[in-house]
């Protein structure tokens, strides 16, 4: 029943589905390692998707669309940063506000583009390699977002672990008072980390609306931003583990789609709920195993100097 061609297509679509999650969760991981829990990922992602689509549709350039999406994600992340970092408001509430605002703004922008389509991002073709059975398309036949996500993963992993910037960022997230005493601008660093998270969420949104499903649909992120947040917990705040997590969730969401296609007699809604149930299961398993270890010590605690 499953021949090599179908298997190859399944693997390729798992990679595509995982890419959105990987990009968004990498950004959130950086924000959280600096000590800020930004629940606005879903909002920043969908604003990226809407702005990216609108710009690409208007200009005909996917590159411009992608840049606009990143910029939109950063702008919205600044709203969150202003509240949670500079005014030291409750981070959970501020993140929720960011998501609600983002969903609204994205809906307003996207409403002009309902029913339109774009040519999605082009895919790599390497004669000989892309035609390889089963893994050819998944490895050598993807669009630029997929390869960019892997470069991003390597960059974040290296920067956090091996560079001075990464060390300072982690110090701010572990003990903001000590980092402040050493003269590091805690709130400035956190703002930059949150902006990086916004850029990544925007980029993930662009991947969604410019490559994965190259059209606009309202609420098209469908909780992916929240799943990205869960992946950060699942990874125990280690970037390399995000890769496994994102691909695992990509696989769950793609396989349930194929299971629906085969008509196994299982209600489609049950299959559709699998990614969300898997998220809960993953959170439970990881928290049962680690019980809160791995989280940056100052995560979610606002920093007010000289308090």
């Amino acid at each position: 029943m499953l021949d090599a061609a179908i298997l190859g297509a399944v693997f390729a679509s798992i990679v595509a589905a995982a890419t959105t999650l990987l990009i968004a969760s990498l950004g959130e991981l950086v924000a959280e390692r600096a000590g800020t829990l930004n629940l606005g990922v879903e909002g920043m992602m969908i604003v990226g998707a809407a702005v990216g689509y609108a710009t690409a549709y208007g200009s005909g350039s996917l590159l411009l669309g992608t840049l606009a999406a990143v910029l939109a994600g950063v702008l919205l992340s600044l709203v969150f940063a202003g509240l949670a970092i500079w005014l030291a408001t409750n981070q959970v509430a501020s993140g929720l506000a960011t998501t609600i605002l983002g969903l609204g703004v994205a809906g307003l922008i996207g409403s002009n583009f309902v029913g339109t389509r774009l040519d999605g991002a082009p895919e790599l073709v390497i004669p000989g390699l892309t035609d390889l059975p089963i893994i050819g398309e998944a490895v050598f036949g993807q669009n630029a977002y997929v390869y960019a996500s892997l470069v991003l993963l390597a960059a974040v992993t290296y920067t956090l672990a091996r560079t001075r910037i990464g060390l300072v960022l982690r110090a701010v997230g572990e003990n903001h008072a000590a980092a402040h005493a050493l003269g590091h601008p805690v709130r400035g660093i956190r703002t930059l980390a949150v902006m990086f998270g916004g850029a990544c969420a925007g980029l993930a949104g662009a991947h969604l609306s410019l490559a994965y499903t190259p059209f606009w649909a309202s609420d098209m992120t469908a909780g992916r931003g929240w799943i990205a947040l869960a992946l950060v917990v699942f990874s125990a705040w280690r970037p390399l583990w995000l890769l496994g997590g994102a691909y695992l969730f990509g696989a769950v969401s793609i396989l349930q789609l194929h299971a629906q296609g085969f008509g196994l007699g299982i209600p489609s809604q049950l299959l559709s709920s699998l990614p969300y149930l898997a998220t809960i299961a993953a959170l439970v398993v990881i928290s049962a195993l680690k019980h809160g270890q791995g989280a940056p010590a100052s995560l979610g605690v606002p920093f007010v100097p000289d308090r």
Partner: peptide
């Protein structure tokens, strides 16, 4: 579009927090 309402609600939450 109905999203205007969501923008209002999100803005309101941001404004009250600030």
């Amino acid at each position: 579009p109905f999203d205007v309402t969501r923008v209002f609600q999100g803005t309101l939450l941001i404004a009250i927090l600030a």
